[in-house]
């Protein structure tokens, strides 16, 4: 038998994060239907809203001028929605596999686990979004990448929101078991009307506008409309979104740690079923 390897203690380890990413990659590539599904819904959404935009654009001059607003909305919404789903699905894989106990007994630290889920949310998002964004160019002459720096700002803010929600939902599932699984699939739809994905904030009643401005994605979708309709990049909106995101991300991470500790106290890490 070979000599005992000296395994040094590392308080933070990229190698452990890499191990988790490798695990999710093995899972993802083991099933081509899952890979296909990552593209399926974004494609359906793109086609539906793209053709609707074409139809409306032919009949209303405003929409004819504001080319790509619907398609831009649908693509940015998918970043928000699929980002959270990618995070949550990777987490749920551990629940389905009853593997959380193994992970929590290993040297993997909660922050490393969360970072690996964040990386996987981007990987899954890219697998779905890159082909669909290229199809948007081919079908509707809408080039998302032409947004340049603005796209980077939109993406950063949306993915941060998606991670905050993903972390919060994962904490709730940790604490309450699979009974809370439904939240992972549905919670983002609460943001769909409030974050004003397809219409400006101004159409909401006054009191609801205040609620909408508490949500970072609202700033992104307003910023996108300002860019596509008025050709103005609103940096102020991005800064507000980033500040709110920083606040919500820190809060979500804190709540996750509290729920994890609560799960340890309740013994629910031993029983990760319903």
């Amino acid at each position: 038998m070979s000599a005992h390897p000296e395994i040094a203690y590392e308080s933070f380890s990229g190698r452990r994060i890499g191990a988790m990413v490798l695990r999710y990659w093995y899972l993802l590539r083991s099933s081509w239907p899952r890979l296909l599904e990552l593209m399926y819904w974004p494609l359906v959404q793109l086609l539906m809203w793209g053709f609707l935009q074409n139809y409306v654009g032919q009949n209303a001059s405003f929409f004819a001028q504001a080319g790509g607003v619907f398609i831009g909305s649908v693509l940015l919404w998918d970043i928000l929605f699929r980002g959270q789903l990618g995070f949550s699905i990777s987490f749920l894989e551990e629940m389905y596999a009853h593997n959380l106990g193994n992970l929590m007994m290993s040297p993997l630290r909660p922050i490393e686990f969360v970072i690996s889920l964040m990386i996987m949310s981007i990987v899954r998002l890219m697998i779905g979004m890159v082909p669909v964004s290229l199809l948007a160019i081919a079908f509707f002459d809408f080039n998302l990448y032409a947004l340049g720096f603005a796209l980077a700002a939109f993406f950063a803010n949306l993915i941060l929101t998606s991670w905050s929600i993903g972390i919060l939902v994962s904490g709730l599932i940790l604490r309450n078991g699979m009974g809370a699984e439904g939240l992972a699939w549905t919670i983002m739809f609460l943001l769909l009307p409030l974050a004003c994905v397809y219409y400006p904030v101004a159409v909401l009643p006054g009191w609801l506008q205040s609620v909408a401005w508490l949500l970072p994605p609202t700033y992104v979708f307003e910023g996108m409309r300002a860019l596509l309709i008025n050709h103005v990049f609103r940096a102020d909106l991005m800064v507000w979104a980033l500040a709110l995101n920083a606040l919500y991300f820190a809060a979500a991470a804190g709540i996750f740690l509290v729920l994890l500790e609560s799960a340890r106290k309740q013994g629910s890490l031993l029983q990760t079923g319903e």
Binding site: P5, R15, A19, L22, R23, L27, A97, G101, S106, P107
Partner: peptide
């Protein structure tokens, strides 16, 4: 306590080996 079912034995051992910092 199950090992993840959908991964192969080698894949599972690779993942856990890295988690435990095995050289």
């Amino acid at each position: 306590v199950d090992m993840p079912m959908r991964l192969t034995v080698r894949q599972n051992l690779r993942v856990f080996g890295r988690l435990y910092g095995v050289i």
